[in-house]
Simulated scan of single mutants.
Amino acid sequence: MSIVTKFSPNFTAGRKNYTPFAIVIHIMDGTLTGTDSWFSNPASKVSAHYGVGQQGEVHQYVKETDSAWHAGRVYTPSWSLIKTSNGQYINPNYYTIGIEHEGKGDTPWSDAMYAASAALIRDIADRWHIPLDRQHVIGHHEIYGAKTCPGTKVDLNKLIALANGNHTTPVNNDDDGDIPQKVKVTGKVTSRSRLNIRSAPDTHKAPVNIVEPGIQLAYDGYVNNGEKINNNSKWYYTEEGSWFWSGGVK
């Protein structure tokens, strides 16, 4: 996935010892270009971690390890996982990741925006071990009930299904007929330990290469139904046609 950095000055360094465990979906109520400008202005006092455009562009405004200013106000929340302490709400910015989307609340979402957002959500969920369900991918209005954000046109269940890889692109099988269907989305990950690179998503295939820990690997997509290892059957594939298990990378 290609991500353009447009870093905002509007954030809190770190996360007050919290770890992100949910993703908040927003609507920009405007254009991607306008949001770039608004988030770059210190006077706006707002930001999000990412913005996704109608054409599938992805901009990053705040690092995931820092707290963007996207969901700090809490009002009549319907989200059951919101944190409290001594009867007070803990600022959700500390434990959520915010994604803005181009358009207004009544603007239909393009297929490109759905696809890009789903791929981004999948990557974030992989990095932070966030479950992909409606308790962990939520609308902004579930934290701040005075708003309708992200509006009436987004289908959050569809977005989550896409992020889970439930919409796949058929491809030809290999000679043995054993390559599963692929989800096409690009990105980068880093090996956790020594990692075998194979010719198929199957440990019965002899390694074609071995990479050392800490090596960045680019992928062109993944499957969710490769060989299951430790209850995880997601495998990445590369442009060269090689495969590696998702449990071996971060």
Rank of each mutant, 00 (worst) to 15 (best):
I25L: 14
T5C: 09
V52T: 10
T238A: 05
G105T: 10
A13I: 00
S110W: 11
R15C: 05
G103C: 06
T203L: 13
K83Q: 14
T76C: 12
A218V: 11
L81W: 11
V154G: 07
T84S: 12
I124F: 03
G139Y: 08
V46M: 15
K250R: 08
F39W: 09
V211K: 05
Q54H: 12
G247Y: 04
S80N: 03
P213L: 07
N166K: 15
N209G: 01
S246L: 01
N166Q: 15
S44H: 12
D133Y: 08
P108F: 06
E142V: 07
F21S: 03
G30L: 07
G247H: 08
G145T: 09
P180H: 12
T12K: 12
G165F: 03
F7P: 04
I25N: 09
G177Q: 08
P180L: 13
P180S: 14
V4Q: 00
N157H: 05
P180C: 12
G214K: 03
N10T: 05
D178K: 08
V52S: 06
G247N: 07
S78I: 00
K104G: 15
H70K: 06
A218E: 14
D176S: 01
L217F: 05
T76D: 13
G56K: 13
K184M: 14
G177R: 10
V211E: 00
E57S: 15
V62Y: 15
G221I: 11
N91P: 07
I143H: 02
Y75Q: 04
Q181H: 14
I160D: 09
H59V: 14
H140V: 01
A206I: 04
Q55Y: 09
L132W: 09
L120S: 03
W128E: 02
D106C: 03
D220G: 04
S242E: 10
D155F: 07
V154E: 13
D178L: 04
G34D: 14
I179C: 08
T65I: 03
R192T: 14
W243D: 02
T76R: 15
I215H: 15
Y144F: 11
L159N: 06
A115R: 09
G221S: 09
D174V: 00
T65G: 04
G139C: 12
L32C: 12
V52R: 06
Y219F: 13
P9G: 07
A161L: 04
P108S: 03
T107R: 07
I27S: 15
R194L: 07
I215M: 14
R192Q: 15
I25C: 11
A118E: 07
K188L: 05
L32F: 14
G103E: 01
M113V: 00
S246G: 06
W79C: 06
W243Q: 05
P180A: 10
N232M: 12
I82C: 04
G247K: 02
G214D: 10
D111A: 03
E142T: 12
G248L: 09
T12W: 07
V171A: 01
